Simulated scan of single mutants.
Amino acid sequence: MKVVRAAYAGACYGVQRALDLALKAVEDGGAAYTLGPLIHNPQVVRQLEERGVRAVDGADDVRDGDTVIIRSHGVTPEVKRMAQARNLPLVDATCPHVARAQKAAAQLAEQGRHVVVVGEAGHPEVEGLVAYAREAGAPVSVAAGPDDLPDALEGPVGVVVQTTQTSEALDAVVAALEERGVEPLVKNTVCFATRQRQEAAAALADEVDAIVVIGGRNSSNTTRLADICAAACPRTHHVETPGEIDPAWFEGCDTVGVTAGASTPEEQIDAVTSLLEGL
């Protein structure tokens, strides 16, 4: 069975940057705390904890003098202020693309627009985008798709998008607004690395008999990759570790594809690939 890796797969710049910053914060044996998991990869989060980087719910759970790390998904302005008010050493590991989206949400709000955030309600990145827009004084709506748009939108509208969403999701929401006669100001903040991985996964899924998507089940970008692959290749399997793989999945397969979410480090991809090559 031939194993083919997607042209673009695995940890993106923002994730690798966050990991590097977190490990640097504890390289002298100190303790550091991330406000929520640093990235959406349970195995990596456990490894970080073994190195002294622990995930907590909020700044109140951090001891005085210990370092606070803002995770790659970012936090709300209020959470950042709470950490600063306690004079806690602060390491901002917010992905630069997420920071750009936060700035865009605030700018749209400052222009007096109703801000529509295209993304998953409750996702930490989306919660941050909503908070940045609301702090700037705007009404905010979250829409994963056209059906989530409110019946009425007062005044001019601005649109910003969760960085790991698909461009198709953004286009669908914008098209629905335009059908209502609304001409929104759109800030397309979909991350280029996310788009690369989605396009590469879709292309690979068309060429193989089965495909394995590697990454945390709590990772929205990995789950989205699995959905994209499943649309083209019914034998799509989302796993976090090699131990989850069942050889029976690949009976009759000549080729199997491998892709991975932006929160998946290289060693996890290598472990799954090695197992598949040995089947």
Rank of each mutant, 00 (worst) to 15 (best):
V159F: 06
V161S: 12
Q162E: 09
Q165N: 06
Q165C: 09
T166R: 15
S167G: 14
E168A: 15
A169T: 04
L170G: 01
L170H: 10
V173A: 09
V173K: 14
V173W: 15
V174S: 05
A176V: 03
L177V: 05
E178Y: 04
E178L: 03
E179D: 15
R180K: 07
R180T: 02
G181F: 05
V182G: 11
E183G: 02
E183N: 05
P184Y: 06
P184M: 04
L185Q: 15
K187F: 12
K187D: 11
N188P: 10
N188R: 14
T189G: 10
T189A: 13
T189N: 12
T189K: 11
V190Q: 13
V190E: 13
R195Q: 15
R195G: 11
Q196G: 00
R197D: 06
E199H: 09
E199V: 09
A200V: 00
A200S: 15
A200I: 00
A201Q: 05
A202N: 01
A202D: 09
A203I: 00
A203R: 15
L204M: 11
L204S: 06
A205N: 03
A205H: 01
E207G: 03
D209M: 07
D209F: 10
D209G: 07
I211V: 13
I211D: 09
V212N: 12
V212A: 12
V213Y: 10
V213C: 06
I214V: 15
G215M: 09
G216E: 10
G216W: 11
G216K: 12
N218Q: 14
N218C: 03
S219D: 12
N221Q: 08
T222P: 06
T223G: 15
L225G: 01
L225S: 01
L225V: 01
L225K: 02
A226Q: 05
D227Q: 14
I228V: 15
C229K: 02
C229D: 07
A232G: 01
A232F: 08
T236G: 09
T236Y: 07
H237T: 00
T241M: 09
T241D: 13
T241S: 14
P242I: 03
G243T: 00
E244R: 06
E244F: 03
I245T: 04
P247R: 14
A248K: 10
F250M: 03
E251V: 08
E251A: 14
G252R: 08
G252H: 07
C253Y: 02
D254E: 15
D254S: 14
D254I: 00
D254P: 02
T255D: 09
V256A: 11
V256R: 05
G257T: 06
V258Y: 08
T259D: 12
A260S: 11
A260T: 01
G261V: 00
A262I: 05
A262N: 13
A262G: 04
A262F: 13
T264W: 07
E266A: 14
E267S: 04
E267Y: 15
Q268W: 13
Q268L: 15
I269T: 02
I269Q: 03
I269N: 02
I269L: 09
D270L: 10
D270T: 08
A271T: 04
